[in-house]
């Protein structure tokens, strides 16, 4: 067999190669994610509308994740309020602001971000494994030969479903965490439930920040997971690689967006 370089690498590729192979891999993943993002936006705006498939995916993302999200949100509420209550009792001795501040932090941070991290593991892996196994069994090639684009057919319905369901699941998660916190405060510290039913610490900026975060996470999870699935290669090992990559990349995307949006929120919305 003859040996030739397939193409001349560009400046960015040379720079990443100089840094080492892990940077080349990260660069390739970034390129794939942005490519899938661009195609998803293009097909979401101008592609075929497949609302039946969006409903099916919404059911899978939403209903089938509900018990998991409720369990995680409930235990988070119990732990957070118990630990915060212990500290507040020791330092300031007054637990009346606990409920209001807890609701504020739930809306700003824990509600959307913890829910999105849970959805990344529960749903992101599912998307990556499903699309990845379609790639390695040539189903994605068959899809293209049928006249469909894999991003349009596989990622876009999950994208719409995820945007809606991440918001819905976050609302459920906030409610469950809040109720769990309320019960914990009542049973562990004897705090009146009325102190939890206050919106005195919540400002409109908190709700805007929650909406921004849930939308950003809802967009990021199916795109990052879809990109991982579409880059699967080889056999079952490739599907495993794609699934692992999806968990890591989705979690990092959520955390990166959290830092970015929280920074924007504190600078612009919450002043």
């Amino acid at each position: 067999m003859s040996a030739h370089p397939p193409h001349k690498p560009n400046v960015l590729e040379l720079f990443l190669a100089a840094l080492g192979s892990p940077f080349v891999i990260v660069g390739e993943q970034f390129r794939e994610i942005f490519k899938v993002f661009g195609l998803t936006v293009q097909y979401a705006l101008h592609g075929r509308r497949r609302w039946k498939e969006v409903w099916l995916q919404a059911y899978r993302i939403g209903n089938e994740s509900l018990v998991f999200i409720v369990c995680v949100a409930g235990s988070l509420g119990v732990t957070l309020v118990y630990q915060a209550g212990l500290q507040a009792e020791r330092i300031i001795g007054d637990l009346t602001p606990l409920g209001g501040l807890y609701l504020q932090i739930l809306l700003r941070e824990f509600g959307p971000t913890i829910t999105a991290l849970m959805i990344s593991t529960r749903v992101g892996t599912g998307i990556a494994a499903e699309i990845g196994s379609m790639v390695v069994t040539e189903q994605v090639d068959a899809l293209q030969m049928s006249g469909a684009h894999p991003v349009e057919y596989l990622v876009v319905p999950r994208f719409w479903a995820s945007v809606v369901m991440v918001f819905c699941l976050t609302c459920v998660s906030v409610l469950v965490s809040w109720l769990a916190g309320l019960l914990t405060a009542l049973l562990a510290f004897g705090v009146s439930p009325y102190t939890f039913a206050t919106l005195s610490f919540v400002i409109p900026g908190d709700v805007i920040l929650l909406l921004m975060k849930t939308t950003a996470y809802g967009i990021a999870i199916p795109i990052v997971a879809g990109a991982s699935g579409l880059s699967a290669h080889g056999g079952s090992e490739g599907v495993g690689w794609a699934t692992t990559q999806s968990v890591v990349n989705c979690s990092l995307a959520v955390l990166f967006l959290d830092v970015l949006l929280s920074g924007f929120g504190y600078l612009v919305l919450l002043r």
């Binding site: 189903q139 068959a142 293209q144 006249g147």
Partner: peptide
């Protein structure tokens, strides 16, 4: 481009080695 390829593939059919039926 991808859109043009999609249009061209309307003129092609392919039987895959491992069936590639959508499961």
């Amino acid at each position: 481009r991808e859109r043009e390829l999609q249009a061209l593939r309307m003129r092609l059919g392919m039987v895959f080695q491992n069936y590639a039926l959508f499961d």
